[in-house]
Every structure is written in structure tokens, then in C-alpha cells.
Nucleic acid binder design. Structure first.
Lengths: 201, 201
DNA sequence: CGTCGATTTGACCAGATGGTCAAACAAAGA
DNA sequence: TCTTTGTTTGACCATCTGGTCAAATCGACG
């Protein structure tokens, strides 16, 4: 990704397209989304949209790649020097914040993985796997030192993903079950409790 | 649903269609799936398929309804008379077994909810909500009696869903992260630990 | 066998969809 | 103003997709 210089107009339109595409792709998935809907939501004609991105897949790819790195930031920041319990609980908090603030991105990713991750499979088996290897080892080192309870690093990380992303991805279901009021209410408390109990010695 | 008498041929073909449709819908989602693919996987021609089901949506609906009740069985069986901790842990176990044995059904449902549950929204706000109301109350009664730790019944149930379904729905991701060997290995232990620690007084 | 209802299929259709292209239009500098 | 470059669009296309239909084929039973 090099920073190609862009005119004012280019920047505006590309941004509008990304925004519209995120909306549509996250709701409908890749195959369910249509260029017409994206174009119309971006306030452009379809040919005009294709003037900025060479294909439907190109837009999708770009969104996905953008999300991926954001998504891993909180895990990347797990600090070997910090207090183990605080580090992990903070990881959970930041991940939950992401779900709260970027539910569309979360669903975009969920849709992709559900399909079998045809476009990000390599990334999963490369970058993601490497990062998890590293951080799982860190967690297990903490456990071995008796600074947190014995726990599988990989499964702990998976649990954090499962719990936090569920609130974004299955929003409709959560909403149905939580009744009126903010469905997110209490989620933070609940997860803090859950993970604290899991890892505290 | 009444039991319409069916010929041998009808039973065989309807079963083949259901099986093929489950496969395709769970991988591609509703919009991504095509009648051609389903028909071909069922070993029938497309018009022949439409002789048995009147539309794409009809097949989908039927699958979804079938899954829904199975999906709630374990929760339904939470027994007020049983030992609280054992009841909840057993619920987790059965839910994880479902994920292990019926990953396609899990993904089918996940796809539907991700889309905003257009076809099962009513079910979620009706049957599901009622059941969760009842069981969440039960859990919180146990908590109030000091038989398990204080915990939100609704959030506990959501956690069970999140944790167990994640292994089926995001299989590709789990597999990438868990490295070689059975990705499910250790999941049961981990979840047992996690939920035991969460609810034990 | 012959008949009648159940089953299967090839041909077809209308609408949607991703994508192309040449022409029209705007912007900005010379 | 003229020219050049960047931007936008209407018309169009090939393909895919859900669905129809009349005709052909099959199967069971008298």
C-alpha cells in the first residue's frame, strides 16, 4: 500500500464508497451485496463506482485488510512487562469496546470467516497464527510462574474473541434475549467477572 | 406441520434435498446459495427440486425451523431440581457437543442471525425470549440462594452460546490458531474450567 | 398389458447483476 | 479561450438465477 496522491474529489468519493460498502457488505455478506446498492448508498452511479475500484472484490478486499490490523491491535499490545491480570482484563475491555464501536467491521469479518475465509485464509494462517503463538506463550508463561491460574493460552484468546464478538455479530439475538434497554449493559461487568475468575490464582 | 403421507421416492428425495441444502446454505448463506448447486449436490435437476419444494425460501425455512428446536433443547432441559453447578456444566457440555456434531446447523443459524434474522426474528422475540426469561430466572434464583456465585442469568446463557458456537461457526479461524491436531481438543476442558470457576461459590 | 397418477426433464423466461465503453462533461492551467 | 486531463454517465452486454410449463417418462395397480 503506497500513498498514491489523490485529489480532493478522489478522497471524498473513495471514502464515501468505503463507508457505503462497509454498510452493505457487513449486512449482506460478499455475495449478498450488490454494486447497485453500494453505489446508491454512496451517492454515485455504478460505472462511477467502478472508476474508483476495479471490481466488487477489490472494494471488499480493501475493507477486509483495513479491518484485520485494527482487529488485532489489542492483542498485539499485551505487554509482557505489565501486570498479568490487568493486561488480560484490559485486553478484554478493549476488544469489547471494538465490538461496541465497530459492529459493522466485526460482522464483515464474521461473514468472511463463516464462508471459510476464502480471501483471508492466508492471513489467518500467517500473521494471525504467529501473533497468537507469541501471545499464547506469554500467557502460559505467566501461568507457569503462578501469576495467573493455569490456563490454555490459545483457548483463553479464543474465549475472548468468542465472548466479545458475539455481542456485535449476533446483536439481534442478544437484543431479543436481553429485553428492552441497552443490550450491551452489563456485558462489560459480566465479562470482567468471568475472565477475572478464570485467571486469578 | 402435519405428517403428510409420503411415498418411498418422496422421502428419499426430500431427505437428499435437505441434506444438500444444509450443506450449501450453511457454507454460502441464503443469498449466496443457488438452487443449481443444491440440486446438483442432491443429484436432481433444478425443476425436479422445485417439484418438492415450492421455492428456495421454502427449503431454507424448513431447515431453519428444524434446527431451532434442536438448538434450544439443552437449555430447555435445565432442571430446577438438579444440582445447580452440575446442571449448568451439563448444559455447556451438551451445547458443545451440538457444535461438534452439527457444525453446519450452527453455521446455518449464524448466517441467518448475522443477516439480522429476517426469517426467525419472530421466533427469537417469542419462543426464545420466553425460554431465556424462564431459565435466567432459575439461574438467578440459584444465585440468590447462594448455591452458585452471583451472576446475570441472561449473560451467563449468552456466554454459553458465544463460547460453544464459536468453535463451530469460526472453525477456520479456530483451526488456524490451534495449529495442527484436533482444534476441538481441549475445548471441553477449557470451557468446563471456565464456567465452573464462574459459577462456583 | 394398459392405464392413471406421480415424477422427471428440456426448453424457456424475466429480472438481476457485475462489468464495459464511448461519449459527455468538468476543472484547471497555458 | 483553448486544451488537456480527470470525472461522470447512459446505453449496453453476457451471465447467472429463481422459477415456469408442457411434454415425456416412470411406477404401481387392476
Amino acid at each position: 500500500m503506497q500513498a498514491v496522491p489523490q485529489s480532493r474529489i478522489q478522497r471524498r468519493n473513495r471514502a464515501a464508497i468505503s463507508e457505503a460498502a462497509l454498510d452493505v457488505f457487513s449486512r449482506q455478506g460478499f455475495r449478498g451485496a450488490t454494486l447497485d446498492e453500494i453505489a446508491s448508498e454512496a451517492g454515485l452511479s455504478k460505472p462511477n463506482l467502478l472508476y474508483y475500484y476495479k471490481s466488487k472484490e477489490a472494494i471488499y478486499q480493501q475493507l477486509l485488510t483495513g479491518v484485520l490490523s485494527t482487529w488485532l491491535d489489542p492483542l498485539r499490545d499485551l505487554d509482557p512487562q505489565g501486570d498479568p491480570v490487568e493486561q488480560i482484563l484490559n485486553y478484554v475491555r478493549r476488544k469489547l469496546d471494538l465490538s461496541r464501536e465497530m459492529p459493522r467491521e466485526s460482522r464483515l469479518f464474521a461473514n468472511e470467516v463463516l464462508r471459510g475465509a476464502p480471501l483471508v485464509g492466508d492471513h489467518l494462517n500467517g500473521e494471525l497464527r504467529a501473533l497468537v503463538d507469541e501471545k499464547a506463550a506469554l500467557i502460559e508463561a505467566w501461568a507457569a510462574d503462578g501469576r495467573i491460574a493455569a490456563v490454555s493460552g490459545r483457548h483463553l484468546i479464543i474465549s475472548v474473541w468468542a465472548e466479545t464478538q458475539h455481542y456485535a455479530d449476533f446483536d439481534v439475538q442478544v437484543r431479543a434475549v436481553m429485553g428492552s434497554g441497552d443490550p450491551m449493559a452489563g456485558a462489560a461487568q459480566h465479562l470482567e467477572r468471568l475472565f477475572r475468575r478464570l485467571i486469578e490464582v
